[in-house]
Amino acid sequence: MTGTFDPWLGRVEEARDRISPRQARQMAATLGVGGEFREGADLPALWHWMGWTPEAAMAELGPDGHPARGGFLPPVPLERRMWAGGRLRFHAPLRIGEEMFRRSEITKVSEKTGSTGQMVFVTVRHEVRGAEGLAVEEEQDIVFIAMPDRFTPPPPVAAPDPDWREEVVVDEVRLFRFSALTFNAHRIHFDLPYATGVEKYPGLVVHGPLQAMLLMEAARARRGGAMPGGYRFRGVRPAFHFDSLSLQGVGDRVATVNGDGLVCMQAEWEG
């Protein structure tokens, strides 16, 4: 596939949106965050992910629930798609109810071979602007892989002894609410027969962005609600709806950890 997706490099998409007080209250309820979320209040870090949700018609969706490929994202002929990680810098606050402008650009498409076979990584760079100008610079890494015959977990990464630990429930209800708030129709998060029978996972998959947001809120709570200067996260191992998941932190590093003591997502708070 080398060079196949070169025409997608530099492709740009622009859009405007708003996050309403109602959306913010619903996300707070889903994450278990307290506070008042009024018009004009600061939007917590990462909550801009509720904006610019897919608007593809039902006839334009692929079998996995995502919009069919070949529009903004390249038509990679590998069935599985995952948000592998991301990096963000925060420059100015976004506020609930204000108009936000996002410019997205595909900056990199690379092919690799790993334990699961061929993989294609697509990096998308976003710039988000609000009333005070540039608010967020973000890079998202999306990975495409072939559909496996069976689930093969990645090599285990043991969690270090934490400074703090917080149990979190990631059951079917929380996964549904998060999917609804982000208008994410990827069936691995809510359709158990599809997740296990088609994509060969042992259960419903916990969203990477949900884990990143839970970790962000836990870190913010231990810093008096402060906003970070930057934040980076990377998926290490899938987490499932039956996992006994905990949020753990050591210094500026945080992670979701399953009941076997293995890291599922790791993240880092940057000042």
Rank of each mutant, 00 (worst) to 15 (best):
A255H: 03
R165L: 10
A84D: 00
L192Q: 08
A146S: 13
E127H: 10
H207F: 14
G62P: 02
V157C: 05
L175P: 08
D252F: 02
D42N: 13
S244A: 14
G251H: 08
H189G: 12
E127M: 03
V168W: 10
K112N: 12
G62R: 04
G32F: 05
L247T: 08
L214R: 03
G225I: 05
Q211K: 01
F144D: 03
P209S: 11
E79H: 14
E98P: 06
D171I: 10
V236C: 12
M216L: 12
T2Q: 12
L46P: 04
P160E: 03
R22I: 09
E111I: 15
R87M: 01
R25Y: 06
T4H: 07
E127V: 02
D252W: 04
F242I: 03
Y201Q: 10
E39Y: 09
F151V: 13
N258D: 15
C264D: 11
W52N: 12
F176D: 03
F190W: 15
F233C: 00
Q23D: 15
D191A: 12
P162V: 05
A28H: 07
G86I: 04
E138S: 11
W269R: 11
W164I: 03
A158Y: 00
G97Q: 11
W8D: 12
G10R: 10
E79S: 14
A218W: 02
H189M: 13
V168P: 02
P162S: 05
A221G: 15
V136R: 08
E270N: 03
A239E: 13
G62F: 01
H186W: 01
E36H: 07
E55H: 11
R125Y: 02
F144L: 05
L43T: 09
G229S: 06
T4A: 15
F240D: 12
R174C: 09
I145M: 14
F151M: 13
D252Q: 11
Q26V: 04
R16N: 10
M227N: 03
E268T: 13
L31H: 05
S104K: 07
R18W: 00
T256N: 07
D141N: 04
T2K: 12
I142M: 08
Y194P: 01
R11N: 02
R150M: 09
G133V: 00
L61Y: 06
W47K: 03
P193Q: 06
L9Q: 05
W164V: 08
I142L: 13
W49L: 14
G35E: 10
H126K: 08
E39K: 07
T123R: 14
T113M: 11
H126V: 07
A135D: 01
Q23E: 15
G225F: 14
H186S: 01
I19C: 14
I106A: 01
P228H: 04
M216K: 01
R89T: 13
E13Q: 14
P155Q: 07
G130E: 02
D171M: 10
T107M: 08
R222G: 13
Q118A: 11
A221D: 12
P154A: 15
A267C: 13
